[in-house]
Design a protein around this nucleic acid. Structure first.
Lengths: 345, 345
DNA sequence: GCCACGTACGACAACGTTGTCGCAGGGGCG
DNA sequence: CGCCCCTGCGACAACGTTGTCGTACGTGGC
């Protein structure tokens, strides 16, 4: 039977000091390994702390300390249950742990009001810095927080204001590369399906697509570019519409993983999965187990997270060098669906 | 150009008080909406706080406050990038937000030493409570923390000590149900593939499998029960071994999603995916897009998370009623792979 | 006109910790 | 033997906030 006390009572330095027969300050010195205490005293204090189960109160410590560190980082993403966001959080956490820093995680659901609220919450807890996946729309709140001196790194989407670090991936270049590969396989009619246009990455990937078309000398067809798709359903409808065209595309580039899934679903339903080539931006679990396995542009999420954490932690350490805009290369993972030739006509 | 100050300087109540020409205590009253301040004074203080960009310091507040709340919850899972863990975190966060509570997230990697360390870190920040997915092995550290009065809820795996809430799913019952369904489809040789036996859920699901066999009047075959599989590779080898048996099983029950994936991979490689029935425990993304779509036992992760958060938050509010062991029902999602008949012999 | 009472505020201490300073004692050096 | 410095420790204040209590003042009843 676990004996659970009615109220949680944490021993303080005062208690440890009393038991060890020394002053509070001496306890502080021992706990923080500051030296200036005799070996016997250190021993006594350690024993007293141990026997009382003393644990330093980090809130009080950070309040009094001159550097004001809370050893806590805020991570503000769109949706913690999204695999990308989760992997990012994990990578930040792992890097932060090295510095004994913990992570306050929250979802802003791509809503700037909620984002502001969460940002306030984090600031109220005096986090040492924040890693933010900016919600689409005005970044005034982020800029405001930043202008107060809060170390901040934007991930996935860059800041629209200056003096702030960011970590993004090669959205445009990799999209172009995907399109060029489709063109190299002989496709002359390549469709584009993109997500919400308010999101920076959607725009970048669309531009990359257009650049790829241009570079391959292919003409741009209005009816083959579907933007601002929200959710799997919209993607499915769009793909169905494309395939029903009298001159249907022979290849599809999807700019987001949910859209890729929607496209694949429609192709499977029609039995055209080996007839229409498909490359998607962003990897997803089991993409390699479908038939055909899906060729994707894969972001290096762990590296993105680690880089972001590195940046914010070094800013916290006082690094005042100019803002860094790190770009982590994405990789084209060829699995089959992007290596289909167009039907011989 | 964003003007970023060299050092972060947050205004305090003292500053607000000076600007508004009132005492610090009055500022405190206004900020906390405690009343006892004249309308004009409230107005002046609000204006002063606004113009200075004042934000209350929650650390200082929680230090001084009588209830000692930090409005922060710890969530300690195995791996934040695992979809199950991420969904759980998300659900807890969403529920916590209602109470203006933030979530400190950390991964213990199923390592009790790391778990202890993270638990210490959380305790040092004086979180109001913790939601823990217990690492396998001795739960001494958890029990110790619990015995100090920290509100705690275990998720996914129950406590081995008393007086502590938990939220789990119907591991045994749902496993049995899966096996019974396979039997109902005429399968008389059903194999089992399970994960690490140190993990409670693995054991429960194995027991459920055995119960199902017994209930269906099927005999247990030693060579068809593979336990303690670590990772996808091990699962693949085990499945390959099973299928090579002279009397190979006609149906497989996999007790964990990675194992399900491994099994499916082998079946696909051999082209037997329509010949051997498969039911997996735990849903995974795209399970419905494979051919055949995978029948799974799906846990209601959001509900598990919400329930856990509800419990820990009510304990924090002072609920001292006996420990609750909530069991959230899992659901058999029939998609095809579990509804295959054995080859007519 | 007196007292009782309620309201609006401020002074002060305290939460648990750390930075500053000061003091006692010992040892080295001239 | 006197001086200084170094080491080991403690007293005290302060971080930003809130709980307690006191005080001034206005209001109402007799």
């Amino acid at each position: 039977m676990t004996q659970v006390p009615a109220r949680r009572i944490e021993p303080t330095m005062r208690d440890v000091a009393a038991l060890a027969g020394v002053s509070i300050k001496t306890v502080s010195r021992v706990i923080n390994d500051q030296g200036g205490a005799g070996a016997d005293v250190v021993e006594r204090v350690r024993a007293a702390a141990q026997s009382l189960g003393y644990r330093p109160n980090l809130s009080a410590s950070s309040l009094r300390r001159s550097d004001r560190r809370s050893a806590t980082l805020g991570v503000l993403v769109e949706d913690l249950s999204n695999p990308f966001d989760a992997a990012l959080l994990r990578a930040v956490e792992e890097r932060a742990r090295r510095d004994r820093v913990l992570v306050l995680a929250s979802s802003a659901e791509d809503d700037i009001d909620l984002q502001r609220e969460q940002l306030e919450s984090l600031a109220g807890r005096r986090v040492d810095g924040v890693v933010v996946m900016a919600a689409s729309g005005q970044q005034d709140d982020l800029q405001h927080e930043r202008s107060r001196g809060t170390p901040m790194v934007l991930v996935d989407r860059p800041p629209t204001f200056s003096d702030t670090d960011s970590v993004t991936t090669t959205n445009r270049e990799s999209s172009r590369q995907a399109v060029l590969q489709l063109a190299a396989y002989g496709h002359r009619h390549i469709a584009f399906l993109g997500g919400r246009e308010t999101v920076w990455t959607s725009q970048e990937r669309r531009i990359g697509y257009l650049e790829g078309l241009a570079q391959a000398g292919l003409r741009w067809r209005d009816e083959s570019v579907c933007t601002d798709l929200k959710g799997v359903d919209a993607a499915e409808r769009a793909v169905a519409g494309l395939l029903d065209l009298t001159s249907a595309p022979t290849a599809i580039f999807t700019a987001q993983n949910l859209i890729t899934v929607g496209a694949m679903r429609v192709l499977l339903a029609r039995g055209w999965q080996h007839r229409v080539a498909l490359i998607g931006f962003d990897d997803f679990p089991l993409a390699d187990m479908l038939d055909p396995a899906i060729t994707v542009v894969r972001q290096d999420v762990p590296l993105i997270g680690r880089t972001a954490a590195d940046l914010v932690l070094s800013r916290i350490e006082g690094d005042r060098s100019p803002a860094v805009h790190a770009v982590v290369p994405a990789e084209l993972v060829r699995r089959g669906s992007g290596e289909l030739w167009p039907p011989s006509s």
